[in-house]
Design a protein around this nucleic acid. Structure first.
Lengths: 348, 348
DNA sequence: TTGTAAGCGTTATCAG
DNA sequence: CTGATAACGCTTACAA
């Protein structure tokens, strides 16, 4: 089996340099020679060794994704899909690092350096140290929906505040005044704190604009996930809170909210409306979901494009930040206010 | 910045060979020298170049996943998680190829060869050609829940027939006699045909063993996914079919079935039981799901372990097949037969 | 226990 | 337009 361009060169009666030029589509090669070389390549079923190329040319055409949760939640699955599609189109491969702790994160970063990856996408970062180590090695970084205050990284995200405002105002516009919110927690330790703060802030702004009070009794800021959505809304109901709509900042929270309402005998949207905020679980609901679409796959595209663009340009990031706008998708889980939860018979 | 063992060697006043030995923990090195070398490595913040190592030693410690759907469905997300965990423990990295067509599959295979990947895991294969090309290059292959009839690949899967038998018999044991099934289609073109045939066969065997007839009117063999589950069960209901339980061979189908029952005013499990077959969406249901657990993450582990083991051994596969057994998890979506669907007022 | 030197397969440089 | 040759950073005989 032919495994090197030297053998190809011998068979085509040219130099290795010429073969290399043909294979890279780079430099001057006469049409006749190029054809001869390609014929030999084809007939010998030759496949170039990209590791050798990378060693010599100092670029691997591989990027890394480092994240806490890639692929286990539908959100990260959709982000990953977008990244893979974009990289595929631009002849980059993707190595995935699944990290669950700051130590594992640092180990992934070191591996990325050892593999001489051309760039890194973070879907979760815990340590500033990780970013600085990569920066020291001149490896471009893009953060996806994560906001560390450093100027040497690129950022791709969505307009969380505007999106949350839109969702809330949509409900208010239909007449809702008691709108529960389920969203991420705002603890300093939460790595997605900025994102979650923006979402909550959009909600608060919409309430304020329309003169509605913020009632903390129907605010649940905590981890994402279906069961957390269930527990939060089930808790509201059991505690006798009244509300006519739920704004969930993820589809998983929305599904949990839906289940809790159904479990307690409430109908969506007749008794209570639900508006969600991702659109990664389009068909998981009994009714078409009313949702503010975050365009998560496009977010993956944007992150990968930003990174690859920058790898090509070899210039430092100027704090560039790509923010995607969201769209409201009208489903059937939002209606004008109905009876509401605990309207007639508060349980305590 | 120090980027080669030559510089490390100079600083530690030893030869490059010695540095290499220290870095690989291989060969004889005196304790004092080893310590000196490691100190220099540490103080210079040196990171080895794994591409150079791979070029020389002819092994990259990278494997590839090739699949149609990695990460977009919860099932593949769980498989991928298992693979990544197993590889992580054994110092392998993973490159993911998302392929949607036979042409893309072949392109991914060629890239895998060009990158000199140490092995390939397939979660979908369409072309025998893909396998043969890899085999020609001596790249070990493991198929996950996919069964091509070639002897040079390893296989990891689950006991589909036994699992489906278990699920069906569980329902029969509680007194169910009209059990609808939702499962994958058996068209020759379906790449998961073997898996789906095994599942359906387990169902049929259980019915036969207990003298129950197979009624094709409550059999829906088609693509997976929530909306397909919904449509199938909604169709049964609208057509007036009677049944007291649904066996869904994926959690997404089960969720769709659940939604269809609820949409039509039936309660689970009072009116109709549901048993599912994956356990990758544990908390997505209103009630704890009764499900035959496929241990999908372990399946990922098993596939990766099998592959890596084989890469290390350098021996050809002897058609080795790893089959995981399943377990029944008792939730709250299965009960003794209740009223049943269309029991009193068949719609036609 | 340590070192010398060749070579993995490619690309970059320079010369023709 | 084409080619000879020296790297890239590492491992692997082989020698000492």
């Amino acid at each position: 089996m032919v495994t090197s361009i030297r053998e190809i060169a011998a068979l085509a009666k040219v130099s290795v340099t010429t073969v290399s030029r043909v294979l890279r589509n780079n430099g001057y090669v006469s049409e006749s020679v190029r054809k001869r070389v390609l014929e030999v390549v084809e007939s010998q079923n030759y496949h170039i060794n990209l590791n050798a190329r990378g060693l010599r040319s100092n670029s691997t055409n591989i990027i890394g994704i480092i994240g806490q949760n890639p692929y286990v939640t539908p959100y990260y699955g959709a982000v990953a899909k977008g990244i893979l599609q974009a990289c595929n189109e631009r002849d980059y491969e993707v190595i995935t690092f699944l990290v669950g702790s700051p130590e594992e994160e640092l180990r992934a970063v070191k591996l990325a350096i050892e593999r001489r990856l051309d760039g890194i996408l973070f879907s979760t970062v815990r340590n500033l140290q990780s970013l600085e180590l990569l920066h020291q090695y001149n490896i471009p970084i893009v953060l996806i929906e994560r906001f560390f205050d450093v100027n040497y990284v690129g950022k791709a995200g969505v307009e969380n505040s505007a999106g949350a405002f839109m969702a809330t105002e949509h409900l208010i516009g239909l007449g809702h005044e008691r709108i529960a919110i389920l969203s991420g927690d705002l603890d300093p330790g939460n790595p997605t704190k900025h994102v979650d703060a923006d979402r909550f802030s959009g909600y608060c702004q919409a309430l304020a604009k329309h003169g509605l009070p913020l009632d903390e009794a129907i605010v649940a800021l905590q981890d994402y996930g279906v069961s957390n959505g269930f527990k939060a809304v089930d808790g509201f109901i059991k505690r006798g809170e009244r509300f006519t709509a739920v704004f969930a900042t993820s589809d998983t929270l929305a599904l949990g909210a839906y289940n809790a309402l159904a479990f307690n005998g409430y109908k969506v949207p007749e008794d209570c409306s639900i508006i969600s905020f991702e659109n990664v679980l389009p068909d998981y609901f009994m009714l078409p979901l009313t949702v503010v679409d975050q365009h998560v796959i496009e977010l993956g595209h944007a992150g990968a494009d930003l990174l690859i663009e920058h790898i090509a340009s070899k210039k430092p990031f100027s704090g560039k930040e790509e923010l995607l706008a969201m769209d409201l998708i009208q489903g059937k889980t939002v209606e004008r206010p109905g009876r509401g939860v605990n309207a007639r018979k508060p349980r305590r």
